[in-house]
Design a protein around this nucleic acid. Structure first.
Length: 547
RNA sequence: GCCCCCAUCGUCUAGUGGCCCAGGACAUUCGGUUCUCAGCCGAAGAACAGGGGUUCGACUCCCCUUGGGGGUACCA
């Protein structure tokens, strides 16, 4: 393949938080495209927003991509924050050619100017303004730092979009001088993205449709710099069930809502919650009263602890949420691919290799799509069932270990592989690995730690004049008398007992279940008893009867 | 306010002018299986946003309306 036709795609996230599913899908499509064409997929970190970018977020992002298996081909990651001199040299050149210039307005002044334009029902456009030498002196004396704006040539811009399959046009009236270097000295996204895509030889840029209008800015800079233009494709946006754009903000919104609820329910106030969370009171107050503000990851976690909100109740939108809640990476990838892309025909369940093979830009849809968690659960259930078919130990055990790594607090972390395999084999038909965790925990805690749920005790043991409890009393004797303790012998004994009493099996299974696990839900009862062992089973039954 | 994109069952989609009174999957409803929860098996209902064109013929092409979404930052 000639170098000029080589496909090079990239994923260029901003490290301001964990990877969310929208970003993951963009990465997936770029990855699929490169792999399909036998080209390269590169990773670049766009950390030019120094206030919001963190090293921690960056580490998470990389871990999430690795978990998904979206391997990138550049051994050396590109960090935009480390390339300031390169950008500055190019900007200096642009200034020298009068294609860029210093702009002295503050953000506040710009907000006022925009408000004025909207009042007049006019679009706001920034075009070059002149300052007298005196004014500039004054600005400098005030300590102002200028931003650098690109003098965007006033003309028509157009480009062909391979996803939308049409030509997009920006009229001359809409050209405006946008900022390419912020007052803090960092380049803006619009500038760095153009320089780096060119330097990295990116052939195809796939990104969300929210970038559609930005593309004209990028083209203008490319033209000024004499760069080759990559092929652009703008992906449909992934939406929530309520039809709004799916993003990190949703979690923030949820936490804010819960914080308000907490303050109301506990007759507390913002300052007290901020104190409990150990974060700055002023910052917290600003966040809780302003929907547009977002907490960073660490602060969000601290606030959640303070108001006792568990991460599991947040809407799953981050790749890490899905990992933590027991989804398989390949399932998430398969499902994500189908949000906005179709291989055609009736095919849905695909391995990564099949997706690579079948991927094409033409198969990408043009319209926004809602993210349907129920269908994802169904995909996960199917994949888990296939895992059972293909071997619990080779297939499901590593997946469960991975799940546990993301859930360090689970008691199952201390359990031997052989027992995890037994547990998995006992309970088929699970939808997520989290179900194994929840359903299996009672095996691995102390007998005294079993918590008997009041509703379960009432419904299964106390109801109908303590019928359940009486059955349990009988069963205690039957089980004590058993010579051999296997699920088969237990089942035979229980069936005998039921025949004697003309009971259905449910009449004995449920009391036993409550006795050994404290609730009404567990893996199949006879195998559970065998697994738990005679001694512990009997201890738990006696303890339950005492209560 | 201004600019832009999109439009098939509730949801994700197949469909590139006649193979479609529209196919699949998830969800839903109803049956069956089962010691609980799941799972599994079977069946059913469910869509081309509306209006104009073009054409012998329109889900497919064009226009308008309506609806949804995005952007409008010294965020990316």
């Amino acid at each position: 393949m000639a170098a000029s036709t080589q496909v090079i795609t990239r994923f260029a996230p901003s490290p301001t938080g964990y990877l969310h599913v929208g970003g993951a899908r963009t990465a997936l499509f770029s990855w699929l495209m490169a792999r399909h064409a036998g080209g390269n997929f590169l990773l670049r970190i766009e950390d030019t927003d120094i206030a919001r970018s963190t090293a921690e977020a960056c580490r998470q992002l990389i871990e999430d991509l690795k978990w998904l298996g979206l391997q990138w081909d550049n051994t050396q990651l590109v960090y935009q924050s480390k390339r300031q001199e390169i950008y500055n040299a190019i900007i200096a050149d642009l200034i020298g050619r009068d294609l860029a210039y210093e702009a002295w307005e503050t953000s506040e002044e710009l907000v006022v100017m925009r408000g004025l334009a909207e009042k007049k029902k006019q679009p706001f456009l920034y075009r070059r303004r002149s300052y007298s030498a005196d004014q500039v002196q004054q600005f400098k004396a005030q300590g102002r730092r200028p931003a650098i704006r690109f003098a965007m040539p006033v003309k028509e811009y157009r480009f062909g979009d391979v996803v939308l399959d049409k030509e997009l046009v920006l009229g001359p009236a809409e050209a405006q001088d946008f900022v390419i270097r912020k007052a803090d000295g960092m380049p803006t996204y619009h500038f760095a993205v153009v320089v780096d895509d060119s330097e990295m030889n990116i052939s195809h840029v796939l990104r969300g449709q929210e970038h559609l209008k930005n593309t004209f800015n990028h083209i203008a800079v490319q033209e000024a710099l004499g760069y080759r233009r990559p092929i652009y494709g703008h992906l449909p946006i992934i939406m929530n069930r309520d039809g709004s754009k799916m993003g990190k903000r949703d979690r923030d919104k949820h936490v804010r809502r819960r914080a308000h609820e907490y303050i109301k329910a506990h007759k507390s106030d913002a300052a007290a919650v901020a104190l409990a969370a150990g974060i700055d009171a002023g910052q917290f107050a600003a966040w809780i009263s302003d929907d547009k503000k977002q907490l960073d990851l660490g602060d969000q976690a601290a606030v959640m602890r303070a108001i006792r909100v568990d991460a599991r109740e947040l809407p799953e939108i981050l790749v890490h949420d899905f990992r933590r809640n027991g989804y398989l990476p390949d399932v998430l990838l398969n499902f994500l691919a189908l949000v906005g892309w179709s291989p055609g025909g009736d095919r849905e369940h695909l391995t990564c290799a099949e997706m690579v093979d079948l991927f094409s830009i033409e198969g990408i849809g043009k319209s926004n799509a809602q993210f349907d968690r129920e269908k994802l659960v169904s995909f996960n259930t199917d994949a888990l069932a296939r895992g059972y078919d293909e071997g619990v130990e080779s297939n499901l055990l590593p997946a469960l270990r991975d799940y546990l790594a993301a859930n360090p607090a689970s008691p199952l972390n201390d359990v031997a592989d052989s027992d995890l395999v037994r547990l998995l084999s006992m309970k088929k038909g699970i939808r997520t690995l989290a179900e194994i965790d929840q359903l299996g925990r009672f095996f691995f805690v102390e007998d005294e730690a079993i918590v008997y749920q009041p509703e379960a005790i009432e419904k299964v043991l106390r109801k109908s004049e303590q019928q359940g409890a009486n059955v349990l009393l009988d069963l205690l004797k039957v089980l004590e008398a058993l010579t051999e303790w296997t699920s088969t012998t237990i089942e035979i004994a229980m069936n005998d007992y039921c025949q004697q009493k003309t009971f259905g099996l449910g009449k004995v299974a449920q009391p036993l279940r409550v006795a050994i696990c404290g609730g009404t839900v567990s893996p199949p009862i006879f195998e559970s008893l065998e697994f738990l062992g005679r001694a512990r089973t009997l201890i738990r039954i006696r303890r339950c009867l005492e209560i």
